[in-house]
Design a protein around this nucleic acid. Sequence first.
DNA 1: GCTTGACAACTTACACTGTAAGGCTCATCA
DNA 2: TGATGAGCCTTACAGTGTAAGTTGTCAAGC
Lengths: 228, 228
Amino acid sequence: MDKPINKKRARGKLSRDRIETSAFEVIEREGLSGFSMRKLAQALGCEAMSIYHHYPSQAHLFEALVDRLIGELEIPPRDLPWRQRVRNVLHGYRAMARKYPAFVPFIVTYRMNSPKCLKWLDGVIGLFEDGGFGRERSARLFRAVGYYLMGAILDETAGYARGPSSVTKVDDEQLRSDFPNVAAAGPYFAPSEFDKTFEMGLEMMLDEMGLEVAGNGHAGLSGAGQKP
Amino acid sequence: MDKPINKKRARGKLSRDRIETSAFEVIEREGLSGFSMRKLAQALGCEAMSIYHHYPSQAHLFEALVDRLIGELEIPPRDLPWRQRVRNVLHGYRAMARKYPAFVPFIVTYRMNSPKCLKWLDGVIGLFEDGGFGRERSARLFRAVGYYLMGAILDETAGYARGPSSVTKVDDEQLRSDFPNVAAAGPYFAPSEFDKTFEMGLEMMLDEMGLEVAGNGHAGLSGAGQKP
DNA sequence: GCTTGACAACTTACACTGTAAGGCTCATCA
DNA sequence: TGATGAGCCTTACAGTGTAAGTTGTCAAGC
């Protein structure tokens, strides 16, 4: 009774752009595990299989989603202080993650290999090399800072503050009596504290790297430092 | 032709212990997304629905798996130097993750709230409080170090070194010419470098915390330091 | 030994998933 | 005008988690 005789095909209705935009919406609305090609199709007003004319598989679609997000990120210009450039890169990534929280679990487990993603990766690693640490140390610092960033966005979007995902629950009273340290730390795990905690950890790592670059004090200002 | 007339029920064959052990095996063999109740049942030599007599849902089963893993972790004794205690906790968690790499994506997105997990959490937060940072700083340092750890085990188990998960691939030649920084950093992203990179980042964070605890030098030896 | 009850396994069934294979319609071009 | 192919739809299949109901098995009480 829904669509009586309207057999007209909606030609040209779909496009990669429209599909991807809808996909983000469905993912955020239904959650990553609640997403399905059929729900996406419904949001688009088409049949599920129509999407397969634009992407050969769901994996290809998701890959396009990552590409779109990473493609919007920028590498901070070289005329900024080095430390500020690193901050900007991390904040940019984190902002993207917080814009699409439901998609984060996919992002952090996705191994990027598309040109768009590699270009961004190349820029970020280059940024670390600009710090003058040399190839090896740059690579490792990039990794270490990346670990921190991935863990942070994961916790901030899918973490404890969203409530327990476990089925067996411990109520507040028992928490306070049996797990006092957790109870005491609880307030600092709240979403309102995310920024402050993230900055603290980030500046810790930057301090260490600054120590290294400048030899002693907290410098690590700009451009390419000394190479070993 | 498989089971001709053998209608005998295998009573008491199943147990939570046996199911969980098999579940870990199936997860590691088939991957997290390849896991299913039916495959688990097959590994156990029973029907899928029989498992539901021991766990009301797959979520409950997975929760039990996390509980089992976390339950095996230990809080390092207080007579060890503080810095060593932190190292031990992180190494313990990381070793667990590397033992069940396919399960890691679930672990890092799981919000623990069972008594067993909370007990461990309480111990770890308490360990940070033993560092003498005070409640707030302890909570934030716990979080920051946790971010680093989660990101690390995620990359080491599900990360780039396992090969790209993307569908569009860039070959090595193009990588070297178009993304030289990535190509140069590549060797340091290999699994053989995991330990070294992890230690570097960990010691960086410990150094910062040591600086804070001791006031200046790299100390932060043992027990409860001064509280602000 | 026989009956009874509860427990632990099995059977069936349903709504949902991704997607392979093929069909239909229409704009474009020869 | 007829052919082509792009763009969407239909059908179908093997897989998923799990609700509901059934049946085989064993221990306890008579």
